[in-house]
Design a binder for these strands. Structure first.
Lengths: 211, 211, 211, 211
DNA sequence: TCATAAACGAGACGGTACGTCGAGTCTTCGG
DNA sequence: CCGAAGACTCGACGTACCGTCTCGTTTATGA
């Protein structure tokens, strides 16, 4: 007499799962997150509503998983094509910290300016701001791993003597991504490569090893 | 030539307007933004739904105005009780830039940890991330004026020789509020006074006048 | 301390009254009674809503008065152009009862087939069926006077020896208008001159003086 | 090729259908038709509004079906308890036409004086007068079958030599029900058994076989 | 002959119900 | 025996009018 509610994941239809992800991402980018409905996703995916409710608790959760899946596939496809790169997403280490950070921040700026990434990301970020549960999953699965790349690169720079060994890598990394995020979230000023460069330069001034 | 449907603002009921603000803020802090409905606000305010729809286009717009009104009244009540302070909200200038910034950032951290401010702010920020129109109003009316206080204090510090005259005050200010916002928005790590202090110290290292 | 609500009828705006009647009749014939609203009448008449509510208790009452006014003006314009006619609306008395009744019933059939009369009459009749108050006014002001014309003509026929003196004129008259009304109200079969004639013939057979 | 929105009637909830009928009839007789709302019916029936809108186009249509259902059940329960009667609703044929008609017309008068039948019938009749669509359904489903009973009884009387074989049964039947209906609809004079009797006598005079 | 009180146009107000949409649950039926 | 299909209850949406209530603005005496 076990839990009558737990669905048997092993019997899950992979075909339906993919169709739901595809439908969700398509609808969000076509009509916006707010106008995307679970009924709509089900209809578009050719799936019963219950098949969605069985596996996800909310629209946001569906979209988060869809996004994660998208990111995973993108990473897979990415491979080793970054300069000096090892793992996918890892920040390159050419020995020139400023150049490496500028490269990554410029790429981030480009993503933020690309509606294909921008719109669903905004939807998820907005939901995560309000819903701690979902925000935690978002942070954990997408944001934090990315921040660790920065941490590792900065620690490498400390080991190489390019950064003050007393500096806190966590604070350093937040000085890089925080301002970018702020402009993106509040649309105060345009996000440009120039801004990314200036940001890196200013932050690195504060991280320089003390004489 | 203009909108033929515009209601006559001069005949507007101030009593209803206030009741709507109060109800909206109360409901959001009691039950959360998502569960707050226009019907609920109207009922709580003892007001017809149409009276809300007549003056606001959306739930978010109501809440934004309610928040603005709240902030305005708070500012009015604030007056001159900040150390070295002149205008309400202005960052104090005691001559010690680090101390002044830490004072303000600690206050900001406290607000972010106070559910009374936190919940409606999250709701508005989330809506603003997704709805550019509303986000613009939010930024313009609430965020940007606050950022200008930072800009002025930093410029004063430049004039006093405490900050590199070549530094860009806008970038400097974003280095202060961006990371704070980032932690708040994504709940990556706790927001503490210690974090505020460390942030100010790290940023000011990068702003120090060159020898 | 008399009734504080009674408006001063002597100061009433005749212009508004006419405009309201015109607007009401126009709207009912254009869009139907159900879709006609007091707000609509007021707007069309260029009149404040309160001017309607001041003088009438309901939409149906407005329409009834509008209809009465229309009928009064029609009667006024009618004059003496009926064969053998005296008063307006009076049933002619040419000495041939059957012919006189057929003449009047054919005219009634024509009115019932004319949408300009049909639609507002249906609206009023329907309202009167459900609302006894209004129904009484309708019957008293419009229907009963008309029925009296029949009563008088039948009594004249009795005096002339064309109708059994023992027959009840009220029952006789209802035998004439009742079936007509029935077909009109329920749209069972078409209303034609032939039907009017057949009806008169059949009824008069039952009214013939006994040998 | 047909309507793409048509719901699947085979999956319809019989329980909801019954609850809606019961609620509709109860509300109409308790508070009157005008004050009966679809929301009210749904609430009383413990049913979602959509379940009403899914299956009926209007309040009047709901009530008509409820009424039809009521009549059908009443007929079913009626059986053979009328004098000389065969089918339910059929007019008895005792050989005495006048008596049979008086029996039925008196029963009709009684129904018209019984608020339980009167109120919903007035509501439906009123709606049918104004809405041809609904009126047609009303006439077809309720009125016309009843009129056919009269037609059949009169034809039987013609066959028996009690009625002029040249008389039109349709006109004859309308002479009986039309006046009754007229008094009922316009409330001109009270509906009594005496009136029913007088009506039958007067009409039969006109239908007597010619010598 | 003007002041003054009313009726007037306009329309905002608190409400009620509308008809629609989607959420999340429950039932049926076909592959 | 899953899962698509979709009917169900529920509740909020945004709209339309209701009937009431101010607002100024005519208007038409009666002091």
């Amino acid at each position: 007499m076990s839990d009558t509610k737990a669905p048997d994941a092993s019997r899950r239809s992979e075909r339906s799962r993919r169709a739901i992800f595809d439908a969700a991402l398509a609808l969000v980018s076509e009509t916006g997150y707010a106008r995307t409905t679970i009924e709509g996703i089900a209809a578009r995916a050719g799936v019963g509503k219950q098949t969605i409710y069985r596996w996800w608790p909310s629209k946001a959760a569906v979209l988060l998983d869809a996004f994660l899946d998208l990111a995973a596939r993108a990473n897979e496809a990415a491979g080793l094509d970054a300069p000096g790169g090892e793992g996918a997403g890892e920040i390159p280490n050419t020995g020139d910290l400023a150049a490496d950070l500028k490269y990554v921040l410029r790429a981030t700026v480009d993503e933020m300016n690309d509606p294909a990434f921008d719109l669903p990301t905004r939807a998820l970020a907005a939901e995560g701001i309000v819903d701690p549960e979902l925000g935690a999953r978002f942070t954990e699965a997408l944001l934090e791993p990315q921040l660790q790349y920065y941490a590792r690169r900065i620690e490498a720079a400390q080991a190489a003597g390019d950064v003050d060994p007393d500096a806190d890598p966590r604070i350093a990394l937040e000085l890089l991504v925080g301002p970018l995020h702020h402009r993106w979230a509040h649309r105060t000023l345009p996000l440009t490569h120039g801004y990314a460069d200036a940001l890196v330069d200013q932050v690195l001034r504060g991280l320089a090893p003390r004489p």
